[in-house]
Structure formats: C-alpha cells, structure tokens
Design a protein around this nucleic acid. Structure first.
Lengths: 250, 250
DNA sequence: GCCGAACCTTGATTCCGGTTAACTCCCGGA
DNA sequence: TCCGGGAGTTAACCGGAATCAAGGTTCGGC
C-alpha cells in the first residue's frame, strides 16, 4: 500500500515512521532498476539503502561533494543544477518520482559536479555504492539494466543539447508543453487539455535555458495567439494540435 | 607496429590491404575498452569486427539509420552532428583516434539520432552488437568498462551543457583553446605554445555553438588583445597563463 | 486583516550573436 | 595559366533574448 502512495507527487503523511527492511523491500520492488528482482536480491540491496526525507529548499549535495551512492525519488521534486562563477544558476533537470540520479558520478568515483536541491518536501532513497557494485559482480542482467539506464540518460541529454542549440525560446517552450502533456497521460477531450506546471515558472525557465522574464513574455505571446490560456501555474490548451503545428511559428 | 601507426591523425599508406583476424586482434588490443584482454577474448571479438575506410565527406550513418554496433576511430576524424528542420547543422562532437561512438544507441536498440560524417579520410572499426552483447554476458568486468565509458560520456555531455548555457562565446573559445592545448601534451617553453586546429574553423565554431563569422570575430578580438596569434589553422599562444586569466574577460 | 516574501509580469534598454553579403585567399584541376 | 569553389574574413544590419527596474499577485504567518 505505501508503494503506490509514495510514488505520488504530494508527500502526504509519513507512512513509515522509520524504515525497516521489509518496508524498504516493498519500496525497492517498485524501483525501475530493480523491477522483477526476487525477495532475496531485494534484501541484499536493502542493506545499503537508506531513506531520506528532505524539506523544500534543502540541498542534497553540492558540486564537489563526494558521492557514495545514487538517489531515487519517491515523492516530491529534486532539481539538478549548476551555478556559474557569477552565481547564476542553470537547472539541468527536474527529477520526479520514480527517477534516479547520481549513477554516472558514482561509477566514475568522482565528486558530484552538479548540485541537487529539493523543490518541494521530498522523500527519496539513497542506494549505497557498495551494494550496487556487489550486485553488478553477481548479476549480469543488473549490469544490463544499468547500461540501459545510462544510455537512456545519454539520449535525453543529447536531445536537450539539440533543443538548446537548434530551437528558439518559443519552440522550446511549446515543445516542453507538448511533452508535459504527453507524459501527464490525461486524455483531454477533442484536443482540449490542461496541464499543471510541476514547479515554479522561474525554475522551468531555467530548465529551458531562458530567463524568467523571457519565459513569461513568450507565455503571454502564446496566450495572445490564442494557443494557450494561462491560469497561474495551470496552462489550458484549447487545441493541442494547433499548438503543435502553429506554436513553433513566429 | 601498425598499432601505433594507425592511432595517428594522418592516415598514411594503408598498412593492411584487408583485415585478417591476426591484424584485427592487434588493433583490438589497443582499443581502450578492450585493454588487457587476452588473445582468446580478442579473437572472439574479432569475429564481429569489420574495418571501415571512409573518404573525407562520406557519411557513416544518418539520423534514423538502424544501428548494428558501435564504431571506433583508428585514424582521421569523424564529426557527430544533427541537422535542424531548416537544414542548419550543429556539431555535437568531433571524434578522434582512440575514441568510440554509437554505444548508447546500440544498447537502446533504437535507430541513430545523430549523423556521422568523416571530416578527413578515416579508418575505423565497426564492432557488431552481437559480440558486444555476448561478451557482456560472459564477462562482468567488460560490463564495468562499458558502464565506466558511458558514465564518462555523460559527464562530458553535461560539461558541454554547462559550457553552452553559462559561458559566453568568447569564454567557450578560450576554454576550447586551453583544453586543446592541454590534450596536445606539447610542453611549450615559458608559456608559449602553438596549437593546430583539428579541422576547419566552421566546424569548430559549430561544435562551440557559434557561427563561423562570430568565431572569426572573436579570434580576431583575442588576437587584437595580444592573447593569441592566428596563422591559418595554427594558433600561437604567447602566454598561456595570460590567456587563462584574462581571456575570459570582455 | 495586515504585512512581508516569493513569485510573476511588464516595460525600457542593451547587447551578444546571427544574418546577409561582399570580398579575399588559397588550392586543385582542366 | 586560368578558372572555380571552398574556406575564411570583414562589415553593416538585425533581432532574440538578457538585463535592469518597477510594479503587481498571491499566500502564509502573526
């Protein structure tokens, strides 16, 4: 029962006062990386897993911190970002429930080179390097999953680079909205859908490599063109097909 | 002996008229991914390896082509890039001898989403998916290497994203020159070094997310500031320390 | 219900970098 | 030798997006 609960966005009341092995195993069974593992394997993993509850704004790690494992989001949102010498920040990714991060750094045995901060009160699991490495030696299929995961990550990142370098601000925003709509899985009758931004507009703007101001302006333009209706953090799309076809135009 | 030969930049006369297993093994022994493998393992690999000689300008694969393995550069340069709907091109990476590419796509069992084109006459190896997968099942340390390689790649890509989004054009160029100098390994007395650009300025500009014109302008500015001297494709740096400290300034 | 702090919007202005268009250089081939 | 084309440079101009600077909203806490 906590399994589904804790993969929702909103934290809700703490289901588990403190993590015992059995509960951990139940959580682990739903981790993408460990899907289909039998109880024995999960128990081995549980030894190196620790639950983390972090408040909104808390920093999980800074650039330069040593890495002892990887993280998995159970609920809430974690932002990965780096900060320039002048203090400006660029959000690389907003991690949502079910997603994990920090694997690559862990495998390289180097310190983190980005920082992670909770955008909302969040609950996550920390999986220690040691148990991952042990399991890798033991189980080739586990290796395959890790490789698949890293490949996927790489793909996304290249897609991001493509987005940043080939698309205008407006195109990036339209693309973001369309993707967000897709992943939300809402049916939306006859092309009408509403999506709720997962976090503040400023953060999303940074994720899309835009300033908050520019983001706001483009949203306004899209609204003026009748392609969207902005209502606080909720965006209504009267005709998603039209947004897809004419949204990119300028 | 051909081993070292073929890891140079310039192709030179073809050392091997056609690849037999023994020669292939000798080549494979120097592939980073396979370093330290014993002859038996290499022989297993050789079954799925094919040598490729491509002329300058030849396209190895387009976006959308199916992927049957990964590639390793023996000599020459291969550019990875994508093209926008409007036909403009963005270079993601310039692969040099000893580097490999296409692994991530191979593991995802998806078609290529970038294209690869030879910048010079080049020689490379194509390693079939099948032998890689077989070896992965057989050898956990091989998996580890793959994971390490993918992690490394991911790291570089994130560093690129950081570069693109946080640094000005000028800073990117200065950074590029400094990295190029570092990797060239030339000693360079009392801070004086010369580096030769690996390929055309237009291509490097695209790699750095700049237009050719802007790249040219910045080079000119740096030259005017006395930080570099441009002589065709060769860049002289009279004082590398000064470039490092004042090059970023604007 | 008031206050302050985040968050967001809006407008004015600036500027980095892209676009366009000559023009030069250099090299290779007929 | 001349020609043609690719690479590189230069300059004028433009525009997308950042910056600066106020306002406006929303919301939680006292």
């Amino acid at each position: 029962m906590p399994l589904t609960d804790c993969l929702r966005e909103r934290p809700g009341p703490p289901v588990m006062p403190h993590a015992d092995t059995e509960n951990l195993c139940r959580l682990l069974a739903h981790v993408p990386l460990l899907e289909g593992f039998d109880p024995g394997e999960l128990a081995r993993f549980a030894r190196g897993v620790r639950e983390q509850n972090v408040d909104k704004g808390a920093v999980l790690f800074h650039r330069g911190d040593p890495c002892h494992g990887f993280h998995l989001v159970l609920c809430g949102q974690i932002k990965l970002a780096f900060t320039s010498a002048e203090g400006q920040e660029k959000v690389i990714e907003i991690m949502r429930p079910g997603q994990s991060f920090g694997e690559a750094v862990m495998f390289m045995e180097k310190p983190y080179f980005v920082m992670a901060q909770a955008l909302t009160d969040s609950r996550l699991l920390h999986i220690a390097k040691s148990v991952v490495f042990e399991e890798m030696d033991r189980d080739p299929t586990f290796c395959r999953r890790i490789i698949a995961g890293l490949s996927q990550r790489l793909h996304h990142l290249i897609a991001d680079v493509e987005t940043y370098s080939l698309l205008s601000g407006r195109e990036r925003i339209v693309g973001y909205l369309l993707r967000e709509e897709e992943s939300s899985g809402e049916p939306g009758l006859c092309g009408r859908v509403s999506i709720r931004l997962p976090t503040s507009k400023g953060t999303i703007a940074s994720r899309l490599n835009l300033t908050q101001e520019h983001f706001s302006r483009i949203l306004h333009e899209l609204a003026e063109a009748g392609l969207i209706v902005v209502e606080g953090r909720t965006i209504h799309i009267p005709d998603i097909e039209r947004l897809r076809t004419t949204g990119a135009r300028y």
